[in-house]
Computed example of a mutant assay.
Amino acid sequence: MRKAKTNNTGFGYLWENGVGCPIGTVPIRRVTKDDLLSLNSLDDDKYKPRGSWSTNFNDSNNPVHNDQYHYAVGRTNNTGIHYHGATMDLCITAPGVKPKQFSHSRLHIQLGNDYVQIGLAVNPVLYGDVLPRTFVYTHAGGKSCYNSHCDVGMILVRRDVPLGMPFKPVSIRGSSESHYVIFGLIKDQANGNWWLQLGDDAEEIGFWPAQRFPQSFGNKVEWGGEVFSANQPSPEMGYGFLPAASVVYDAYVKRIAILDDNFHFDQQVYHLEEFSDNIQGYGVIDSLEFKDPEEGHIIYFGGPGNI
C-alpha cells in the first residue's frame, strides 16, 4: 500500500508555484460571487454535517427515511471516557455526487453540545466541483461553519495548506496502490487549544482556542462516511460499493487512535460499534485484526446510496 503524496517539509506540492503563500501570510481561498451564494445556502440547517448520534434509524427493511443524512461509521459506544484527541489515515476517494448533495469521509469529535469534523469532502455546494477536498466543520456555541468562514471556525496558521485544497492522487478501487492522507485532531495538554494536524509528521495546520468550547474534552468519537441529499436519492459513499473488508476494494479509515484521559494514545480502540442507518445503501465493517502492524485498527465503509 502506498501513501498519498505528502511532503515532510511542507505541502507546497498542493500549489502551482510549489511553495505557497509569502512568509507572514496564510492562504485564504478566493471567494467568488457564486461562492457567496453557495455559502449563503449553507446557513440553512441543510448541508450542515452532524454526528450519527442524531439519528437512531436502523431498519434495512424500510428504505423510507425522513432524514436526508446517512451514515456508515465506527463510533465509540462507552460512557465516562474523556477524549483529548483522535487520529486516522483516511483513504482518498471521489464518490459520485450531484448538485445539492455531499459525501464526506471524516473524523467527528463530540464535545458536549459542540463538535468538530475534519476530513475530505466531495461537496459541490461548498466547493463548486466534485473533487475530494480537505474540509473542517465547527459547531460551537450555537454557531457553525465550514473551514474558517465564521468566528468559531478554525484559525489557520500554515501558509502552504489552504483549507479546501484538492487531494490527489485519488485511490482507484481494485488497484494495488491505495492513497491516503493522515489527519489528527489533538488537544494541547498545556493550554487546552485543539490542533488540526495533517500529514506524516503531524504538521500543525490550525487550531481552535480552548475557550471556544465550554466542554474541554470529547465525549464521543466516530470515523467513517456521512452523506446528504436535498431532494434526489442519496449519493455514493467511498467507492460507491458496500464494503467487503478489503483495503483494495473498500474505502477505509485505518490506524485509528484516540488520545485518552491521561493523554496517552490508544491504538487498539476496542470500545467501538458499527453503525449504518440504512444497510441497503451504506455499510461499515469494523476490523480489529492486526495481520499487518502497519495497518492497525481499520474501519471499512461505503455504499451506492440511491435511497
Rank of each mutant, 00 (worst) to 15 (best):
F217T: 08
W223K: 02
Q189K: 14
Q267D: 11
G10S: 04
Y270D: 12
F263H: 05
V248C: 08
N8T: 15
W223S: 01
M154A: 06
V170C: 05
E203I: 11
R159I: 02
H179F: 14
Y239R: 01
D43G: 15
G206S: 06
S178T: 14
D45M: 10
G20T: 08
L259N: 00
D151F: 10
S229L: 04
V19K: 15
G85Y: 03
S38K: 12
E295G: 07
T32L: 06
D35T: 06
G303T: 01
N66I: 12
A257L: 03
T32N: 07
N193S: 09
Y282M: 03
D286K: 14
D277H: 08
K5S: 07
D261T: 06
Y180V: 03
P214T: 09
M88H: 02
W194T: 04
R2G: 11
V284Y: 00
I28Y: 09
A251N: 07
G74W: 00
S171P: 01
D34N: 13
F217L: 08
K48D: 07
G142R: 05
Q280K: 13
V227T: 13
G206Y: 03
A245M: 08
G51R: 05
T9S: 15
K291T: 12
I298M: 06
S41G: 15
G281V: 00
Y270L: 13
G224Y: 01
S103A: 10
P304L: 01
Y270M: 12
I109E: 01
A230V: 12
V161Y: 13
R50E: 15
R106W: 12
R159M: 03
G302N: 04
L131V: 08
Y146V: 09
Y115H: 13
S60I: 14
P49L: 06
P169C: 07
Y270K: 12
F228E: 07
G24K: 05
Y115K: 04
T9D: 15
W53E: 11
K220H: 10
A244D: 15
T79Y: 14
